[in-house]
Amino acid sequence: MQNMAEGIGLAILALLAIWGAWQVPGASPGDTWAGIVPFAASLALLVLSGVMIATAARANATGPIDHSQSESGTLDILVLFAVALIYQQSFRWFGYVLSTAIVAPVVMYIFGARSWVGLAASVVVCPLVFHILFFVLLGVFPPYGEVFDLLDWLRE
């Protein structure tokens, strides 16, 4: 069943890629079509997804369904991914320092840290260390928070 789902997922991706390649305008005289490689690659992907679906259908018809793939931990990954998405978006809204100060203890908690002192320390230590390393020593210009920027406020 899982292989069938993977095959169907891949087929949908391949069809989207074929549609995307088809949107590329035709070549001017004496040139090659800019969509030739994306089109060929997505067509090949469609063929492979067909092979996956056919293999999965044959396996389902002849053998038992494989339930060995463990789903444990998937929920934690989805939570961490949601944190990651919010974290990267919060760079734009609140700059680097405030976002990191909030996210550091959250991620440490997800990874099993339960010392309240450690979690509290991470609020200050993580943004400070990363700020010094990347934005002071390496001279990278820090992302500016559009809504509120703690670093800007501290500097004032």
């Binding site: 990191t100 996210v103 550091a104 997800i110 990874f111 099993g112 840290a113 991470s122 990278v140």
Partner: peptide, 19 residues
């Protein structure tokens, strides 16, 4: 401690890709 190491790597990934 692994519960400190991986969160640090997680945050480094963000700042490194930005920089």
């Amino acid at each position: 401690p692994v519960n400190v190491l991986y969160p640090l790597i997680f945050m480094t990934a963000f700042v490194a890709s930005y920089s």
